[in-house]
Design a protein around this nucleic acid. Structure first.
Lengths: 153, 153
DNA sequence: GTTTTTGCAAAGAATTTGCAGCTTT
DNA sequence: AAAGCTGCAAATTCTTTGCAAAAAC
């Protein structure tokens, strides 16, 4: 059983607390959306949350779900599975390699590392399925953004 | 200098070869798009490729760029930076953790590993910027898809 | 010559936004 | 009562598709 998503009551309390501190109102929609994300173990999309919630809140709109999910992310209560990508990006590099991603400007820099590519993977992976490749993403702040914090590349 | 993207002539020859084998026609648009991806080291989007190419082919349309990029990917000549994600997915799990992604059905399973989280990162990363977190994505085929190859979750 | 490909324009899909009325504090 | 939220509908953005003309083999 998952540690985080199972201590439901604590996290609901944390939400109430964070909302108060941020001057954000507690509405039934927000409570139910957060509850539903906590109850999900499959990385749901906004649409999936919206569908699942309609049993309890039939009138809720999809845009409220989006607004709330981003609010929860801003409050640090949930994450997105991958960083937001405005569009599909292509790459001519075919060799197995890894990425450094700047969280400020979105720039992605390739790097290679034989040691990282041949990592000893945890045995639990065998239960999930067959492994084909391993990719490491290092996230941080690139040199350029450290100098000029608001720059966009 | 990058190994792959610098041996330009060989890769253009590979493209001509692969196109012939696949019964795909070599058009100026396709040659120029592939050339431009090879010449790019910043993981360009379709729109960026389109813009850069307009100097040489002013009439080229964005949809041709999209069609060609996917064709090149199908031929195994280029990759996308991240697997195609139909929509944003959210996650209540806040602890640093890693993902197994099924390339067939898209399912993402979380896993944790203290060793992987504390990897010795290659020194070159210091040149890129400040590291904040490390995430590993293992790609493969999940158990369910091994049994029923066409299933979608 | 046949078949594929292109460019255009329009369709689709996911996400965001403006606004008037309603809820929370 | 005041401020912030919601739902609606429309707008945006990215990507895909149908089709007739054009190009490649």
């Amino acid at each position: 059983m998952k540690k985080t998503t199972s201590c439901y009551k604590e996290r609901m309390a944390t939400f109430r607390q964070a909302a108060k501190e941020a001057g954000v109102k507690l509405t039934p929609q927000r409570l139910e959306i957060y509850r539903q994300v906590l109850a999900s173990d499959n990385h749901p999309s906004a649409d999936e949350i919206h569908t699942r919630i309609q049993r309890k809140l039939p009138m809720i709109s999809l845009d409220t779900v989006y607004r709330t999910l981003w609010l929860l992310a801003d409050l640090g209560l949930i994450n997105t599975v991958n960083p937001r990508e405005e569009s599909i990006r292509f790459d001519a590099k075919l060799e197995e390699h890894h990425h450094f991603r700047c969280e400020t400007c979105g720039k992605i820099i390739d790097f290679e590392s034989a040691e990282l590519t041949q990592l000893p993977l945890p045995p639990v992976l065998a239960d999930f399925g067959q492994t084909l490749s391993v990719q490491i993403e290092v996230r941080g702040i690139c040199i350029a953004c450290q100098k000029t914090p608001s720059s966009k590349v």
